[in-house]
Amino acid sequence: MLEIKDLHAAVDGKEILKGLSLTVNAGEVHAIMGPNGSGKSTLSYVLAGRAGYKITSGSIRYRGEDLAALAPEERAAKGIFLAMQYPVEIPGVTTLTFLKTALNAQRRARGESELDAMGVLKRVRARASELKVSEEMLKRALNVGFSGGEKKRLEILQMALFEPRLAILDETDSGLDIDALKLVAEGVNALRAPERAMLVITHYQRLLQYIVPDRVHVLSAGRIVREGGPELAHELEAKGYEDIVRSAA
């Protein structure tokens, strides 16, 4: 599904990713952990195609295709979804209008028929009630005045709505209370399927109790310095990053 080889990437001319390699197969969930500033969000932005994030060498292949050549919207239409660490507030665009525009843009790009307002509303409502996103929130401007946890739940609602093939969750668990964390984890687990893959970026082992990963990777200074099974997350929780980072250096 996703094959990253010796990836070097720079932000505003500063190299942040320094030889990162990672393979994720369909049906798998991988967790990425690592200290603040190690490049986790940078990796997620590079995968989503954010302007200013430049691949200087190495490659990213997604379902056999070179990702670097695709615009962010093309990546979305091809099934890549990034739940952002800091969802953006957009005044003047109501959440529901945004969801409809995005869903239909993706469908159109894939050659599928567009949904009418009712069709969109039905789909949105079904997911919204599972994630406890209120009707009132859907009528408000996108993310404007939403609490931290509400923003994260809206990210997961989008994931559920768009049904991506590759979902990247960047610290979706940060700022969630325990109940919301369970809701979000259920949302993610409901989407686990043989044809889908997920990259879960987190600082906390707690999320990984609910979303049990196939592999755990530790990112430090722009590279993967350690890999393991779910037990690695426990080890990190107990010992912190210091030993691993030092032994990798």
């Binding site: 302007a51 615009a71 919207e73 990546r75 790009a109």
Partner: peptide, 14 residues
């Protein structure tokens, strides 16, 4: 730019 990227990352063309 952040808003523009957010919308595009959701599949909405530039």
């Amino acid at each position: 730019a952040d808003s523009l990227f957010y919308l595009r990352s959701r599949g909405i063309a530039d």
